[in-house]
């Protein structure tokens, strides 16, 4: 464990807790893409298949349970909660899951480290996580209203993967056999997807104006 990875995990943790807290307190999911949240639940499900088979550390297991629990809770709130579901904008959140899931699945079947079920699922979860934010970014551009918490949520989500890139660089230089080029490529693609959001986020923060994404 290094400081970059710990900072990355904490940033990721805060991002999902900010979202869960927002939905739980104001009982609204306005501006939140259910599609993205469902994709994240799928990311964690396919990535943490080793939850009960490989014990890494207490921290690792606890964090996996938190991420699984929070992502499924958020999906449950938006789908099932009698008040929250009313604020879900299903007419605008129309990104098709299979446009994202299928290419990632095909890619994972073609490019992976080992052709085993768990390894292909793990690779699939990496590719999926890289593009899972797309429905949310599309929704933000469509609705154009980005309330603070949603802006913070997307920002923290992008920041966590950027911190992970620093962690991969650090581990590459400190651990001789640390080679995870698939992880690195997926992580860089993921962070680049946030790049334009970051640009507009900082612009709005610097000029102290409401965050607006170009149509």
């Amino acid at each position: 464990m290094n400081i970059f990875r710990l900072a990355g995990d904490m940033t990721h943790l805060v991002s999902v807790l900010v979202l869960l807290l927002k939905i739980h307190t104001i009982k609204s999911c306005a501006g939140i893409s259910l599609k993205t949240q469902e994709l994240y639940a799928l990311v964690f499900t396919t990535r943490y298949l080793d939850l009960f088979t490989d014990y890494i550390s207490l921290y690792n297991t606890v964090m996996k349970l938190i991420f699984l629990g929070s992502s499924f809770s958020i999906v449950w709130y938006i789908r099932r909660h009698k008040i929250v579901r009313r604020s879900y904008d299903k007419d605008q959140d129309t990104f098709r899951h299979y446009f994202i899931v299928l290419p990632c699945l095909v890619l994972a079947l073609l490019i992976h480290h080992k052709f085993t079920f768990k390894e292909v699922m793990w690779t699939f979860s990496l590719y999926l996580e890289a593009v899972a934010i797309l429905p949310q970014l599309v929704l933000l551009q469509r609705t154009r209203n980005i309330d603070n918490l949603t802006g913070q949520y997307v920002f923290l989500l992008g920041a966590y993967r950027a911190l992970y890139i620093l962690n991969w660089i650090y581990r590459h230089y400190t651990e001789p056999h640390y080679v995870h080029w698939i992880t690195w490529i997926a992580g860089i693609v993921q962070t680049l997807l946030y790049a334009d959001f970051f640009y507009y986020y900082f612009q709005s923060w610097k000029n102290n104006v409401k965050l607006q994404l170009p149509a």
């Binding site: 080793d50 991420f67 992880t183």
Partner: peptide
């Protein structure tokens, strides 16, 4: 092989 059998990152 380069890929550690266990994925120790989240």
């Amino acid at each position: 092989d380069g890929e550690s059998a266990k994925h120790d990152e989240l």
